[in-house]
Design a protein around this nucleic acid. Structure first.
Lengths: 193, 193
DNA sequence: TATGTAAAAATGAATGTTCATTCACTTTTT
DNA sequence: AAAAAGTGAATGAACATTCATTTTTACATA
């Protein structure tokens, strides 16, 4: 137990350090030596947990993505109405982006650059299925516009990434009021009038 | 003339090579040697045109951003109604993202990572003023929802980046029909009912 | 409970490579 | 023929990864 526990701690520390360094400096300025130092570990130790740098970043991505989707769907179940379900998922995602912005920023960077493998990217997308199912339900009931899931995603979930980045970088405050306004915009963009 | 002409060609070739390599491999895998080779130039020549790698990327970003905003506002003038003006700008931006996706992808990557200086980022934002002015006009006339410009941007312009990426990466086709649907979603999300 | 020891985990210091940048020199332009 | 532009090869630093060694752990035995 002690041994296993210690190992998981080191692994977590490495993943945390990776996220922090990639967020602040970018992949190109996140050397293994710095990651090791930030995780209080020898550079050589990283290779006990991960094959190489690419593997470290891929695994970090998948892990963060899993945490994200788990959080997103925690309050959702398919007994909810389409509108209730959508609001539940959307607000959880908004919540995640606000409260866990370190992780959210890392995902945003991975999703917009070629730093992770295509395979790992695909792996990360899988977990989104419940939302796609909900949208299909909404479309078949005539509640949600009959348009591509890509567009639905682009106009509801994706804007949250932009708003989170704006919050982190500029003077914009992604607070309760703005979240509520953003939710209205999201829903207005996809609902059938 | 001959001399100046030649210089501009080299500079353009360097910028083009930078965009292509950063798009395909990411900043971390776009070495100066490859950029030089792709531009048919000696590595040393890059330093006649740019201070260093950071400067090359910053300048590339600013140049591409300028091209982008120039294209975006080419058909706009403030005599248009709010709705006409918005549609004009939005569709030009959509057009740019479709037709010049190399440049658009480069901007998306820069806007979501720390590869360019904060100063250069600010520089790039300046040119967006006409759109912000249009939005203020729309808000004061009660045509556009009275919400932060960040949210307006997040729900109208930013989704286009996501859709373009989806088009480049997955099977999604950002064609005329989808553009039209996306425009409706964009307008529905910000207009007052 | 204390002790010895083999396996596992961890390490700091190499290693070899890649890279950004510079330099001494050549070619082109004026 | 002086100045400007361009070059390929050199330079030194930074990096990912490996290696030889040390430390820690697990646990059998007394």
């Amino acid at each position: 137990m002690a041994k296993l526990q210690k190992s998981i701690d080191k692994r977590n520390a490495l993943i945390k350090a990776t996220i922090e360094l990639v967020n602040n400096n970018g992949f190109h300025a996140a050397p293994m030596s710095k990651i090791a130092k930030m995780a209080n570990v020898s550079p050589a130790t990283i290779y006990l947990y991960f094959e190489n740098k690419q593997d470290l970043v891929n695994k970090t991505y998948i892990e963060v993505k899993a945490k994200y989707t788990q959080y997103a769907f925690a309050t959702y179940n398919d007994r909810l109405t389409v509108e209730e379900g959508f609001e539940a998922i959307w607000k959880r995602i908004a919540d995640f982006k606000c409260k866990d912005s370190e992780n959210a920023m890392f995902l945003a960077q991975c999703d917009n650059t070629p730093i992770i493998d295509e395979t790992s990217r695909q792996e990360g997308i899988k977990h989104l299925q419940p939302l796609l199912d909900l949208w299909e339900r909404g479309k078949s009931k005539g509640i949600i516009k009959p348009i591509s899931n890509y567009i639905l995603y682009a106009y509801t979930i994706n804007p949250l990434s932009f708003l989170m980045m704006a919050d982190k970088r500029n003077g914009f405050q992604l607070d309760k009021t703005h979240i509520e306004m953003a939710y209205q915009a999201a829903w207005d963009s996809i609902r059938v009038n």
